[in-house]
Design a binder for these strands. Structure first.
Lengths: 211, 211
DNA sequence: CAGCATTGTTGGCGGCGCCTACATTGGCTG
DNA sequence: CAGCCAATGTAGGCGCCGCCAACAATGCTG
């Protein structure tokens, strides 16, 4: 992953024929634009102008606009997976704590990356999605599966297949994050309501007689 | 709402200078295109060609493309509210039955109108959304509030404010519908998993000691 | 250092959204 | 019922866009 260094280099060296790392620069600038003005307003030509290259230069790195959006979605999945994995790393053992950590990580990511998330979700179910993208989504869904099945092993979560137990949990998590990210839930309620949502999920997946 | 009659008329009368009901025809055709090729592929000029009018004719009815999308979203909200209201009309009294009916109605709508739903959600939180649109979303969220507070009155749902009880329920509902609609949940799992999700929600909002 | 794949440039094509000026229509009013 | 006017549709043009093909600079590799 190329980062600050690359960007600084780009800006200080005014005009080489070859840019250095145009691909990374395109992705970085595209994400900025996405945040500022939304997906619809993203234009390859404008991107090229911003970076001081010709209007056809981006095509050397992304065969068309969709390819750039796919690459952005992939970045998003990698970032999301990292954030969620980190949340589990230092959350202890208790299912409740781990669930809390994951919910906060996921909701936080969705709030910080709302537009990117749109991209990620609108692309993933395409059957011809790239291999890397499929792998990224797999790694990520696996984190939830591990959380749930660990909870089952320790008796904190009711028995049942992942489809039966994990799906409702993830649906709740995803639904809440989406409501918050799209602004359907006013921000002040969204922040305050997280604990209640976690309690709701815990009741929903607790073993019988242990509500 | 103008419907089949209008459309038939449009097709049989080949070329009047005035179309008759271009606005309704635009909305109808736009929704078709949306279903077939997605939001990004919707073009006012193509729409006009399809309907046999000049490329600038649509501007008489929608000041710009966004206005047409807004109108489509409004149609979507009206349709969703109707479907959900109908589900409550003949669902009996029991909270469980009413919740089941509403979940099926909502998920069914999302599966049938996935693209429209995208529009609806991407527009609603715009602070300058039209009055009609705001009213439409209000009517619809009210249906959920009524369901929950009725359940509280009859003792089937735990006490607490709508934010505390209704939001988790709605988040689960919405999340599941979204996962199913975007294809993240394979269709066969999506169909089969509904009952489990409903049970999850019932556990989540049951009064204490009544899981 | 010669050759070649990579990367960037220039120019052009058709389509788009939106604007302005103009044409036709049908309903309202005197 | 005549004439006028607002509503509706048309014609053309502007500047953007994505994509393509032909050409130019670069730097890696034998």
């Amino acid at each position: 992953m190329h980062t600050i260094d690359t960007l600084a280099l780009m800006q200080t060296s005014p005009r080489r024929y070859h840019h250095g790392d145009l691909r990374a620069a395109l992705l970085a600038r595209a994400e900025e634009t996405l945040r500022e003005k939304g997906t619809a307003a993203l234009s390859l030509r404008e991107l090229a102008r911003d970076l001081g290259v010709s209007h056809a230069a981006p095509s050397r790195h992304f065969k068309d606009k969709q390819a750039l959006l796919d690459a952005l979605a992939l970045v998003g999945y990698e970032r999301l997976t990292r954030v969620m994995a980190e949340s589990q790393a230092d959350a202890g053992e208790a299912f409740r704590k781990r669930l809390e950590a994951m919910v906060h990580a996921y909701v936080g990511f969705c709030l910080d990356n709302a537009v990117l998330l749109d991209l990620m979700y609108s692309i993933k179910h395409d059957p011809e999605a790239s291999e890397a993208l499929q792998e990224a989504t797999r790694q990520w869904s696996e984190l939830i599966e591990v959380l749930v099945s660990d909870g089952q092993r320790s008796g904190e979560v009711r028995e049942g297949s992942i489809e039966r137990v994990g799906v409702p949990v993830f649906a709740t998590l995803h639904g809440y994050a989406d409501l918050a990210a799209t602004g359907m839930l006013p921000p002040e309620i969204a922040e305050h309501g997280l604990d209640e949502v976690i309690a709701f999920m815990l009741r929903g997946c607790a073993p019988d007689g242990r509500a």
